[in-house]
Design a protein around this nucleic acid. Structure first.
Ligand SMILES: NC(=O)c1ccc[n+]([C@@H]2O[C@H](COP(=O)([O-])OP(=O)(O)OC[C@H]3O[C@@H](n4cnc5c(N)ncnc54)[C@H](O)[C@@H]3O)[C@@H](O)[C@H]2O)c1
Ligand SMILES: NC(=O)c1ccc[n+]([C@@H]2O[C@H](COP(=O)([O-])OP(=O)(O)OC[C@H]3O[C@@H](n4cnc5c(N)ncnc54)[C@H](O)[C@@H]3O)[C@@H](O)[C@H]2O)c1
Lengths: 213, 213
DNA sequence: GTTTTATTGCCTTAGTTTTCACAATAATTT
DNA sequence: AAATTATTGTGAAAACTAAGGCAATAAAAC
C-alpha cells in the first residue's frame, strides 16, 4: 500500500490529464505524453505506475481507457463516494452548491448544522440538525465528512462525527485537529496558503514551488 | 532564502501555535513545547529556526513575543497584505465574507467579475468589473489575487491578471495553471483533496499522512 | 523473417528532508 | 563559586523522493 501523499496527488493529476487526452481522441499514451500533460518527468510517471503495479506495453505505451480504469480503481472512484458537510456557513454552502464533484463520482448527500434557521429537510440535498448526524451517516454508510464550522466548535464537532463513524475529515477550520488513530484528517488552511504565497512572492521566487492541493 | 514550502508552512503553524501559547500566558517556550503544539519534533523546530537564523537561549528557550515578531517578519506579516478576489461565485463570495483574514493582517480590497449583476461599487469591499482590474491593482499596489472563476475561464483570466502585475495567485479552478516565471501559483483542488482522503480512508491508513494546506 | 527503432521497467545515482546525537553553554542548585 | 542540569545549535547520519541510465523487448520497417 503506497502511503506517499505526493504520489497519490500525482495519480489524481494523471487521471485528469488522461481524461483530457481521451477527449482529444488519444487511445494510447506514452509515459512522456502523460508526463507533459501532468507536469512531471516521464520516469516519475513510470515509477509511480510501477509502485501500483500498473504495466504498459514496451514500445506500445499504455491504453488510455485501461489506465483511467486502473487509476480510478486505486483512488476508489469506481464506486460513488458519499460525503456530508458539517457547518452550513459561507464555505459549507459554497461547497454544497458546487456541481463539479458529481462528475468525479463524489456525491454530497446532506449538510448538517446546529442553527435551526439553516435546516431544510426537504431540499434535494437536505440540511439536517447535527443530532441526526449519527443515524444518517450510519444508515447511509458515509465515511467522509467536510468540516466547515467555526474554529471554536471544530474540535468538539470533530469528536462528535468521529464517534458517529466518520473515517476521513476534510477540515477548513484553522486549527490542528487530532483525530483518532484510524481517522484521516486533511486540513485546508487558507490563511496559511496565503501566507505561503506572500512569502514566495516577496522572496521574488524564481523557482516556483510546486504547490498543489 | 529558504525555498522549502513545507518549511514555510511549518513557520505559519509555529506562529499560530505561539499565539495560542501566548494567550495561555506563556512568556518563554522550549523547542519541545512548540513542537508539541505544532505537531512536529523538537529537532525539526530547531532546525527550521536555524535555517532562518532564529536563535534562542541555551537552557533558556525562546521568548514568545520575540519569536512571533521574528516569524511574522519572515512571513511578511509585519505589513498589511492586500489581496483581491477574481470571480464572485460560490467560492469567491464565501472568501469575501470571511472576516478571519484581517486578524492575520490580510485585507481583501475588492472583488472582480464579468457579470454586471454582481457589481457593487459602493460596498465596503467593492465588486468591480474585470476591466477595472489593471488600474485598481496598479494604483493599490496589489500583488496577490485569489482566482475563483470557472475552470474554462481560469487560464484566460490568469493571463489577464498576470499582465496587470499580479505576482501570486491562489487558484481554485481544477486546472494546471502555467504562470510566468516570476509568478507564483498555488492551487487548491478540492476534488483532488477529497480523492486523497478517500484513498487513505479506504486504505485504512494507520499512519495519517501529514496533510496541511 | 530479420533488422531497426522506440519505449517500458527497473536498477542505480543524486538530491532533498528529517532525525539523531552531542558539544557548547546558560540557568539552577549546592 | 563550583557542580549539576537542561536546552540549544548544528554537523552527520538516515530516510525518503526524484532523476538518470540502460537492458529487455515489442512494434515497425525493410
Ligand atoms: N469562509 C471562508 O472564506 C473561510 C476562509 C478560511 C477559513 N475558514 C474557516 O472555515 C470555517 C467555516 O467558515 P465560514 O465562513 O463558513 O463560517 P460561518 O460562520 O459562515 O459558518 C459556520 C456554520 O457552522 C455552523 N455551526 C456552528 N457551530 C456548529 C456546530 N457545533 N455544529 C454544526 N454546525 C455548527 C453555524 O451555524 C454556521 O452555519 C471556519 O472555521 C473558518 O475559520 C473560512
Ligand atoms: N464552489 C466550490 O465548492 C468549488 C469546489 C471545487 C472547485 N471549485 C472551483 O472554483 C471555481 C469557482 O467555483 P464557483 O462554484 O465559485 O463558481 P461560480 O460559477 O459560482 O462562480 C464563478 C464566478 O466567476 C465569474 N466569471 C466567469 N468568467 C469570468 C471572467 N472571465 N472574469 C471574471 N469573472 C468571471 C462568474 O460571473 C461567477 O460569478 C471553479 O473553477 C470551480 O471549479 C469550486
Amino acid at each position: 500500500m503506497v502511503m506517499n501523499r505526493k504520489c497519490i496527488i500525482r495519480l489524481s493529476r494523471y487521471k485528469n490529464a488522461l481524461k483530457r487526452l481521451k477527449s482529444l481522441g488519444f487511445v494510447k499514451v506514452f509515459s512522456g505524453n502523460l508526463a507533459d500533460a501532468a507536469g512531471v518527468t516521464s520516469s516519475q510517471v513510470r515509477k509511480d505506475f510501477s509502485l501500483f503495479g500498473i504495466t504498459g506495453n514496451r514500445r506500445g505505451g499504455y491504453r488510455v481507457d485501461e489506465l483511467i480504469e486502473r487509476i480510478s480503481l486505486i483512488l476508489g472512484k469506481n464506486e460513488l463516494q458519499k460525503v456530508v458537510i458539517v457547518g452550513m456557513g459561507n464555505i459549507g454552502k459554497a461547497l454544497m452548491r458546487y456541481r463539479g464533484f458529481e462528475a468525479g463520482g463524489i456525491k454530497v448527500l446532506a449538510g448538517f448544522d446546529i442553527d435551526p434557521a439553516k435546516y431544510n429537510k426537504l431540499a434535494e440535498i437536505p440540511i439536517l440538525p447535527l443530532e441526526d448526524f449519527r443515524e444518517f451517516v450510519q444508515s447511509q454508510g458515509v465515511k467522509i465528512a467536510i468540516l466547515a464550522v467555526p474554529d471554536v466548535s471544530a474540535h468538539h464537532v470533530s469528536e462528535v462525527i468521529i464517534s458517529a463513524g466518520i473515517k476521513g475529515i476534510l477540515n477548513f477550520a484553522p486549527i490542528q485537529l487530532r483525530g483518532a488513530d484510524d481517522v484521516v484528517v486533511s486540513s485546508i488552511n487558507l490563511e496559511v496558503e496565503l501566507e505561503n504565497l506572500i512569502y514566495f512572492v516577496n522572496a521574488g521566487a524564481k523557482t516556483e514551488p510546486e504547490i498543489e492541493a
